[in-house]
Design a protein around this nucleic acid. Structure first.
Lengths: 225, 225
DNA sequence: ACATAGAGTTAATGATTACTTAATACTATG
DNA sequence: CATAGTATTAAGTAATCATTAACTCTATGT
């Protein structure tokens, strides 16, 4: 399954800070790229297309504000999160920073915990719009588009069928008990007959034409390609 | 699509602060609602459904953090922006605040300018629905000129029809739930009947003469050429 | 080999959900 | 205030989905 880590680019000329932030972000599961000046930040941003760019305002070559402006001018970085990080807690700079299109402005010194919390807060909001697309081998299950792709072929499933398949595919290999499936897909207050799940499973198998749901007799079903 | 002024609810027990913030926000064109304690904030939030809630952490009746938690627990406030505003710049409080689901945490005293800039920054990101011309294959949707072009043919849509089409076309392929559509096009406080969306969809399909809206039964609609 | 339990299959039914059309209510404009 | 263009509701129809029931298949233990 594809669980692409969020990429974060940190640009700061102080190696210590770079190190601390990198360590903390990496610990949270982010993929971290570092740069030590404005030009390097720009160059790496273009190459790696990070989800978040953290910019020290005072940097050699180009200041954080300059980098921010240059990035925002490019279509590819219109949506990218940008945080300014700086020792200068000058009000004017902060305003200019935010007006340049930054999403947050943090003053040094900042505790790693507060830093991480703010980063997470930004991602949290961004996250709402993107549902999780599952890619398992040559199969793609996209809950946002409500589409299942097998190879290049798009297959349309009905609502319950899709929900059932999505549930199983969330944890490939793991067996879901019939009860679990009922709770997750139907809700724990709905009572449906014994054969309901079977029939839906059947429809899925039929429509997909690929044997991806394995029956575990007496237990439940699991997704397996 | 909502062109109404953004509604902001401010809750603080200090009348001075309430007044200053209200003045500044109103000046920027926001519609401001005020509350002087936690309970009042909750009550007014439920009634007015603001786009942004600014909560003082230290308030009578209920603290800002409590209000935030109660709001976030309700579906209607899942997307609402929430800012904490407080004299206490205690790190733990800040972390807890942000983890509760707040979007920003500002420490008093704060300059009105910085305050406004941060509010604007939050809205800016939310407002990614900026008017832009969509070109999808041979279809052009121009919200500025209010024109839809299919090939060389210009087609005139009514307001709601246009807004609906534009919303769907913003993210081609992505399924929009009926609820999402209602919120985005009609606004989350308007109540219209079940069949309203259908009828508008029908009109669009009819006028465009192109099959570009796909129904996903039990789920919603998506734009697809 | 047979009984049995669990799962698969199929078709039929009832329930949902959407489509369509027409009628009515609303709103801005001259 | 009349009108045209829009928006919404209502009501009937069509489509498709979910569920059940009845039957079949298959593996397992005796």
């Amino acid at each position: 399954m594809e669980t692409k880590a969020r990429k974060v680019l940190i640009a700061d000329d102080e190696p210590d800070i770079l190190e601390i932030l990198k360590y903390n972000l990496a610990n949270e599961g982010y993929e971290v790229i570092t740069a030590k000046d404005g030009d390097e930040a720009l160059e790496k941003a273009r190459r790696t297309l990070p989800d978040l760019v953290i910019l020290d305002v005072m940097m050699p070559k180009k200041t954080g504000v300059e980098v921010c402006q240059l990035l925002r001018a490019q279509a590819a970085f219109k949506e990218t999160l940008i945080i300014f990080l700086t020792a200068v807690n000058d009000e004017g700079t902060q305003i200019r920073g935010l007006e340049t299109g930054a999403d947050d402005y943090l003053s040094k010194p900042i505790s790693p915990k507060v830093f991480l919390t703010r980063v997470n807060a930004l991602f949290r909001r961004l996250n709402k719009t993107e549902a999780r697309i599952l890619v398992i081998d040559h199969m793609t299950i996209d809950p946002e588009r409500f589409i299942v792709k097998v190879g290049e072929q798009e297959i349309v499933l009905a609502k319950k069928e899709f929900e059932l398949l999505y549930l199983l595919a969330l944890k490939p290999g793991r067996v879901f008990l019939r009860n679990e499936i009922l709770n997750q897909v139907w809700g724990n207050d709905v009572i449906v007959g014994d054969r309901t799940i079977d029939v839906h499973i059947r429809k899925i198998r039929q429509k997909l034409g690929v044997d991806c749901i394995t029956t575990v007799k007496g237990v439940g079903y699991k997704f397996e390609l």
